[in-house]
Write a protein that binds this DNA or RNA. Structure first.
Lengths: 161, 161
DNA sequence: GAACAATATGTTATAACATAACGTTTTTTG
DNA sequence: CAAAAAACGTTATGTTATAACATATTGTTC
């Protein structure tokens, strides 16, 4: 058995994060233009702040950062941008943390499964069809029609083990 | 394949909920006395309010109800009771709803998987080892050591389909 | 059962997370 | 360009949760 799809693996500490951001931005531009959506200045700024690390980022932390460049930013500024990014599939929300993280593969909408390191805060994203299918199947056994799935696994990442 | 363990199934609308509550209370008494913990008056009241339906209940709704019997109740009153009930395993928190629901089997701590009906709000609890094991295994493939799992499936329950 | 320790609750204030409502600006489209 | 649509600004407030410290209750030891 193998993990079919790892969208964002755990990175070592020396990885070049600038290139992560750059690549994510390119993907975002592509996804938006394909969908006919506008990646405005604010949305891009919020997107870059979400991507500032591989750990989830909180809305009010984004706001504080954003404030440096845009003194008029207020909570709705950030939440609107996040809602947009979520709707296009460029970021995910980690429910158990009230925080947001960049999506590893915005090229197509998907259900992500998240691995959250309780030591360093890093998050990896899987997209294992095996899990998706099993959950759907087990739910079906109870007569339940699945629309959406939320999987967040907490533990220790390879570096912190 | 079958669902190995359904802790709380979806109930029909005519089911006798009084008996659900009664049975849950008996379980709670047993679990507390076994663990050497005290199910105080406030904790019992909060527990009963959580069990007032098979849909998740919000902390401030509990507070409003509690207030009728106990005018001095404040947010910490409720959150402390909920924290206690969570720690003993008598209730679960539904992360995607910021809400709380009675546990279907407090006799032993467990990881629950929740089915949330988007139409009627009802929640069923599964405890499928197959899911737990698969998630652990897939995480392990990435060098991740699982401590805890969160699974919340959204969709339509049998009655609402 | 008095003294002490531990646990539980009361109380006030505030932190943290999120949205409603309405006005203004910018962009797109015919 | 004018009208419509989309994005953003602004103010206020709703919702969820905890910090910090005081008081009360319960359990334990002698």
């Amino acid at each position: 058995m193998s993990v079919e799809s790892v969208l964002i693996p755990f990175k070592n500490q020396q990885h070049n994060h600038e290139s992560c951001i750059k690549s994510a931005l390119a993907d975002a531009e592509a996804a938006c233009s394909k969908a006919g959506m506008r990646l405005t200045k604010i949305r891009r700024q919020v997107f870059e702040l979400v991507w500032s690390s591989h750990a989830p980022v909180k809305a009010y932390d984004i706001l504080a950062q954003l404030h440096q460049e845009n003194p008029r930013a207020a909570p709705p500024t950030v939440y609107r941008a996040l809602d947009f990014l979520l709707s296009v599939g460029l970021v995910h929300r980690i429910e158990s943390l009230n925080a947001y993280i960049g999506c590893g593969d915005p090229s197509q909408p998907h259900i992500g499964q998240f691995l959250i390191c309780e030591a360093c805060g890093a998050v990896a994203e899987m997209n294992a069809q095996k899990i998706t299918r099993l959950l759907r199947k087990q739910a079906e056994q109870l007569g339940f029609k699945t629309v959406n799935q939320l999987v967040e696994i907490r533990g220790l990442c390879p570096q912190c083990t």
